[in-house]
Write a protein that binds this DNA or RNA. Structure first.
Length: 528
RNA sequence: GAUCCCGUAGCUCAGCUGGCAGAGCAUCUGACUUUUAAUCAGAGGGUCCCAGGUUCGAGCCCUGGCGGGAUCACCA
């Protein structure tokens, strides 16, 4: 069923039909691009490339470019428009007499619109007003745009008619990317961030591996999983919530250092810090401990900041954050004492509950020692940690996969890096005593039976691996999206994920999907 | 999940105390061979998110729903 077209869409469809009738293919096969707009703007040299009243340019700068028409100023027999390619925009000058007979009046003026993709061949010059432009001698239609773009206009840095609807931008990211060069920049920076991280790890000899996304037993973190099913084996499977237990099996297997940059999936709420599908980098290094890992993380993040921005001082929101090494290190209990005046080390559940209540927190009886400490930390300490800070030595109850602290009873060797009031990474000296690990899993099972749906599951195969002996190992998980937010000064995780999860589109937009999308479907999916 | 704010033309937004649905850009027609938010003259374009209610009359008031944003809470 064809949907109804808006006036502007109909105009564009008619133009496409006219093109075909005139023998112009609205969807060309290829175009030889020799230059990008930024290269032209950088390399143009008035002395060599600009014609003068005395004569032609000593050395013509000939270019072939391609991109979208983003604005048009038609003045009778000549016109200017801006062409946008990946690198930016450049103005193009078109005059009737430089194009094939009739092409300017029929095709250029009547059949092309803002948003169409065209190829231009010509020479570069500077206009009277001083803008470096391409004088077109050949113009080819490469792809006709049938939908109008929300066109932003700009003068003196002020943007008019800005496309601001967040939903529009996330749902139709392709349009957002066309209209907003800074969005393209954000994702280019994200890519550079990951490639910097990868080279950093590769240079140190760590092996990049791939472990299962579909897992019969999920583990490695406290979270609710997505559940799915394999038909042939008639088997329940979970989408991974972490890679941890598989990566540590590889340390057992004899790799000294392995890492994985992975999509993990957690069946939990959405917020500006949470997307159900997100990217994590996990790293495990044999014969090292958490103290060593702190050094590695700060070195890696510092080098990323330098690679992206050439500085360790980054502006994030209204704050300046310094990623310069070394970062502050602060034991969890000291951090809490600093902020609240309460020393929690060694306190039992009742004492902690009393302190939490005194501090004004809402608590209930099911909260254990670890949970209470975590609440107090999250409420009174974490939001105040703006500059990168390592919080170290967590209660054992919160960390079923971490090794007992070598000197502090009841704690584990674990750290989190907190930046701008949010957790950036989580790491520990890995627990490698299989019997201790079994006991910790059993504790988790008890929590699960009491209704904690984030409790970890017993993983017999993992225990078997540990029984073969895992060297002392340091492990790290770092939230790539969170790091990307910091590195690109983005206030929402949706601004660093190309296609963030959104609700399905409702029926008034169902024309997008043709027939299958009925009111009943939408109602069902909302209930789900 | 809770609270607050929002939903009007392709885009950005006005719309008074409830009284004929508006502007700029975009689109269409015409003029214009160095413009740049190009300019000038004219034209078309609306399920005012949806469903009820109050009213002589609803974009506006009331109820319910849907969608979005922000904040809070849980996980990274």
């Amino acid at each position: 069923m064809a949907r109804e077209y808006s006036e502007q869409e109909q105009v564009r469809r008619d133009a496409r039909a006219n093109m075909e009738e005139a023998g112009v293919n609205p969807y060309a096969y290829s175009w030889n691009v020799t230059h990008h707009s930024d290269e032209i703007l950088e390399s143009f040299d008035d002395a060599r490339h600009q014609a003068t009243e005395e004569g032609p340019a000593p050395e013509e700068l000939r270019v072939s470019i391609a991109g979208r028409i983003m604005s048009r100023r038609i003045m009778g027999k000549a016109a200017f428009f801006h062409l946008q390619d990946e690198s930016g925009r450049i103005q193009v000058y078109v005059s009737r007499d430089d194009l094939p007979e009739g092409f300017y009046n029929s095709v250029f003026k009547k059949m092309l619109d803002i948003g169409d993709v065209v190829g231009i061949e010509g020479f570069v010059f500077r206009t009277r007003v001083g803008e470096i432009s391409v004088h077109a001698q050949q113009l080819e239609v490469l792809s006709k745009a049938l939908r109008p773009f929300p066109i932003e206009k700009e003068q003196d840095g002020h943007v008019y008619n800005a496309m601001t609807d967040k939903e529009f931008r996330y749902r139709q990211r392709y349009v957002d990317l066309v209209v907003h060069p800074e969005v393209r920049d954000t994702f280019r920076q994200r890519a550079r961030m990951i490639s910097t991280m990868r080279s950093f790890l590769d240079e140190r000899g760590y092996v990049e591996v791939e472990t299962p996304v579909l897992q019969p037993i999920y583990g490695g973190a406290a979270a609710r999983p997505f559940t799915t099913h394999h038909n042939a084996l008639d088997m329940k499977l979970y989408m991974r919530i972490a890679d941890e237990l598989y990566l540590k099996r590889l340390i057992v297997g004899g790799f000294d250092g392995v890492y994985e940059i992975s999509k993990d999936f957690r069946n939990e709420g959405l917020s500006r810090f949470h997307n159900p599908e997100f990217t994590m980098m996990e790293l495990y290094v044999a014969y090292k401990d958490y103290d060593w890992m702190m050094g590695l993380v700060e070195e890696m993040v510092e080098s990323i900041a330098l690679a992206l921005h050439g500085t360790t001082e980054l502006i994030v929101g209204d704050k300046t954050i310094s990623f310069k090494r070394p970062w502050k290190r602060l034991p969890l209990f000291d951090a809490i004492e600093e902020r609240t005046g309460e020393q929690l080390f060694g306190k039992d559940q009742a004492e902690l509950a009393a302190i939490a209540k005194k501090l004004g927190l809402e608590i209930d009886d099911t909260m254990g020692v670890g949970k209470l400490i975590d609440e107090i930390f999250g409420e009174f300490v974490e939001p105040h940690l703006i500059q990168p800070t390592y919080i170290t030595d967590y209660p054992i109850e919160l960390s079923p996969l971490a090794k007992r602290h070598r000197s502090k009873n009841g704690l584990v060797e674990r750290f989190e890096a907190i930046v701008n009031g949010k957790e950036l990474c989580n790491a520990f000296s890995e627990l490698n005593d299989p019997d201790d690990q079994r006991a910790r899993f059993e504790d988790q099972e008890r929590l699960g039976n009491k209704g904690d749906d984030e409790a970890m599951q017993m993983d017999e195969d993992y225990l078997r691996a540990l029984e073969y002996g895992m060297p002392p190992t340091a492990g790290l998980g770092i939230g790539i999206d969170r790091l990307a937010m910091l590195m690109t000064n983005s206030e929402s995780i949706r601004d660093v994920i190309l296609f963030p999860l959104l609700r399905p589109e409702s029926e008034h937009e169902s024309d997008e999907h043709g027939e299958g999308s009925t009111t009943e479907d939408s109602d069902e999916s909302r209930k789900a």
